Amino acid sequence: MTRLISESPILPASPAELRLLIEQRRSVRRFTDEAVPDAVLRDCLELATLAPNSCNLQPWSFQVIRDPELLRRLHPVCLNQNAARSAQVLVLVLARPDTWREACQQIIEQWPEAEVPPPIRDFYRRTAPFQYNQGPFGLLGCFKRWLVRVVGLRRAVMRTPNSRAQMRLWAVKSTALAAENFMLAVQSHGYASCPLEGFDDVRLRRVLTIPRQAVPVMLVAVGKASEKGVYNPRLRFPLERSVTWL
Rank of each mutant, 00 (worst) to 15 (best):
V220A: 08
V91T: 09
V220G: 03
A185H: 05
A176R: 10
F130T: 10
A114S: 15
G190M: 08
L246I: 13
E240A: 15
L184F: 09
V28D: 01
L208W: 01
R126M: 05
T209L: 09
R203A: 15
L177H: 00
V207A: 05
P211R: 04
A103S: 15
G223R: 01
P59N: 10
V157E: 03
E102I: 09
C44I: 04
L79S: 08
V64S: 08
E23N: 06
D201W: 03
R203N: 10
R241G: 05
Q131P: 03
F123P: 01
R205W: 07
P52H: 02
A156V: 09
Q166F: 02
Q134S: 09
P97I: 08
A128F: 11
L50T: 12
C44R: 00
R205D: 04
A35Y: 00
G223D: 01
A114E: 14
K224T: 08
D33F: 07
V91R: 08
E23T: 09
Q166M: 13
L184P: 13
A225D: 00
P68N: 09
P37H: 03
R212G: 06
L4G: 01
I120R: 14
Q213M: 14
S242W: 12
V157G: 04
R164M: 07
M183L: 12
P195M: 13
E240D: 14
A214S: 11
N80Q: 08
V93C: 03
L21Y: 05
Q110P: 06
H75V: 15
S8I: 04
N80M: 07
R72Y: 12
E180M: 15
V222I: 13
T32I: 10
V150I: 15
V230F: 11
M158N: 08
E113F: 07
T160C: 09
A114G: 06
T244D: 12
A225E: 00
E115Y: 09
R26V: 00
A192F: 08
G138W: 01
V172N: 03
P12A: 06
A171F: 12
R101H: 14
V186H: 03
P118F: 04
T49W: 02
R155I: 11
V222A: 01
L71N: 01
L18V: 13
C194V: 02
Y191Q: 05
C142I: 12
L4D: 06
E46Q: 14
L45E: 10
P161K: 07
E17A: 14
Y191I: 06
